[in-house]
Design a protein around this nucleic acid. Structure first.
Lengths: 240, 240
DNA sequence: CGCGTTCTTGACTGCTTTCAAAGATGGTGG
DNA sequence: CCACCATCTTTGAAAGCAGTCAAGAACGCG
């Protein structure tokens, strides 16, 4: 009865991800599972949250892909970072905060309110899991800056594919070296600071080099070891 | 007796900055001022904090410039974001956290431990000020991604100069349209994802266009209005 | 089956890098 | 006070990576 979109995770994936960040009580897990009932569907290409909106509380993205992004006055779009199914957004440590950045869906998305941790216990498992999740999000932001500032198109693509595979693995959304990637080449370009034309050429180069293929929404990493070597890849550390 | 480096702020600037984020009690301010006594000096080009180091508590950078950065295996350097005098680093909401990124000094730097907020009162003025500070830091990260991903060298330079002027103004470190910028053109390049040669050319273009000059460590914004128009500049909102 | 979106490829342009070398600057010691 | 040296800035010429423009092919949805 509780269905998620095609690119969705079961809530189990999301719980597994948070559990790997901090020890959740069985009550925590139960609260997450029960809030699944309050889920809402959002069409693709819709704003989930706009800059300046009040931040109501943490939100679980149960299924579908979204992004934090920025539109320049002349129409150029930059995708700041992706939000993958099973990840939690709107984690915030300020009182009565306002959103700093707009979040937009790339696919149809299913969300539900994630349980708020006990405000009197900042050390609770749930609060810690959210804090770690936020820290990892920030680490991904740093990686994104590094990618855009100092890597060639070829390196950016490799680094990002590896990172995305690892992130999806946390919620069990990979199948060996394969994963589903519901992004157009234009969206990939807006993420990696390239044109869609050059994304296409770069993917072709990766294919010709036998490193990875991306066809009909499925990515396969053929030679992960070599990809890691080319960009000096290190997974985002678990930061405690 | 308590001296700071040439590019330093008085602690008053740092207190003013935090006070603009949340209402600090006079006790908070007194605690900040009194911790100034525990200050330490760090030479330029030294790591203040290394990836994986345990995070002891918030640290005030009372004087000097530093950066969060990443070194690629082949020596390329990316400056993720700058840390300006009067800003607080190591703000963290995890239990027993480890540093996610290395922080390195660009100039001689003076730091002292910033007071820890009451762990039982997440709504205290100090805790809120730190939380807002961290949120603004993240907003700057997003701006940085946008700059690197979708702006030309010319636009990046303008956008960054405007942002830096605004950030320095929070601690009273600007003199009208002027401010001191203790960075080499190579460091600016590592920040903006450019070579030092192209930084030089870009600054020349800005000078020729009558927008801004940067000579002997002093930047002057000659035509802020036009600079803002060129890049569609909006200051980082106060995010509550 | 038809239409809009997305992908693919070619040819050409141009912004930024690379390589190189000369000039300015600033700090240090004689 | 000045010579000297390292560092930083400035400029030119040439190469290259990625962007732009354009058009045809493939795909997917109704």
């Amino acid at each position: 009865m509780l269905m998620v979109s095609k690119s969705g995770v079961t809530v189990s994936g999301a719980v597994a991800r948070l559990s790997s960040f901090a020890a959740l009580t069985s009550d925590d897990c139960a609260r997450i599972r029960s809030s699944e009932r309050e889920q809402s569907w959002v069409q693709r290409h819709r704003d989930l949250i706009r800059v300046g909106d009040p931040v109501a509380g943490p939100i679980m993205v149960a299924g579908g892909w979204a992004y934090r992004g920025h539109l320049l006055p002349d129409g150029r779009r930059q995708i700041i970072d992706l939000i993958l199914p099973g990840e939690v957004i709107n984690i915030c440590f300020r009182q009565d905060p306002l959103a700093v950045v707009t979040i937009t869906t790339l696919t149809e998305v299913v969300t539900f309110p994630a349980p708020r941790p006990d405000p009197n216990d900042a050390a609770s498992g749930l609060a810690q899991a959210y804090a770690v999740s936020a820290a990892i999000e920030e680490a991904h932001l740093c990686r994104q800056v590094r990618r855009l500032g100092r890597m060639s198109a070829y390196e950016r693509m490799i680094d990002w594919l590896l990172e995305t595979h690892d992130r999806l693995a946390l919620t069990g959304m990979v199948d060996g070296a394969d994963f589903t990637l519901p992004l157009t080449q234009e969206a990939i370009g807006d993420l990696l600071g390239l044109t869609s034309v050059h994304v296409n050429r770069t993917l072709k180069a990766l294919r010709d080099d036998g490193m990875a293929t991306a066809a009909s929404r499925v990515v396969r990493l053929h030679d992960r070891a070599r990809m890691e070597r080319v960009v000096g890849y290190k997974p985002v550390r678990t930061v405690q």
